[in-house]
Amino acid sequence: MGSAIIFWILATIAVVTAAMTVLNRNPVRGALMLVAHMLTLAVMYLTLSAQFVAAVQVIVYAGAIMVLVLFTIMLLNLGVTGGGIRSRGAGFVLAVIGALTLTLAMVGGSVWRHGLAPMKATAESLERGGTAQAIGYALYDPELPWLFPFEVISLLLLSAIVGALVLTRRRSE
């Protein structure tokens, strides 16, 4: 019962902050709402017994990524003039209809129509499923398929660094 109450409180905060991120005219306020949203999701990962993912969510998303976004917003200094929401015309109506259809199709198609397979979680997997130790053992286990993607991710991040440097270099020789 207590976990259900916590879920509904967190879900309300998450949806409200997500909506405010989308609808706020001021990009800085939107970014701060997104930080609140990500912190809410981190708490939600804790209720899903995914402790390590919750920590990574706070450090990488709420920390690194949002600092980068806020830094860029303030660097470009666009204020509120950088373009609000397209609230007129057929595009807006299409977007509303599209978002509603997407919601109905995904909820209806995935969960209500077919239902989920019965829950396979055990008390042990709920208790220790997401600790840093469990994640580390699974990540470097050669029997599981995660080691190769992990190495490829390092290559991806390296190319992202080089790409960002090349894209922002001034061409004035």
Partner: peptide, 24 residues
């Protein structure tokens, strides 16, 4: 949790379709 996930996803999809600021 899945329903909440879908709801947040559609908030994001709506934002991508309607906002004009690429940072947003």
């Amino acid at each position: 949790y899945m329903a909440l996930s879908v709801l947040i996803f559609c908030c994001g999809a709506f934002g991508v379709a309607t906002r004009r600021n690429p940072i947003v």
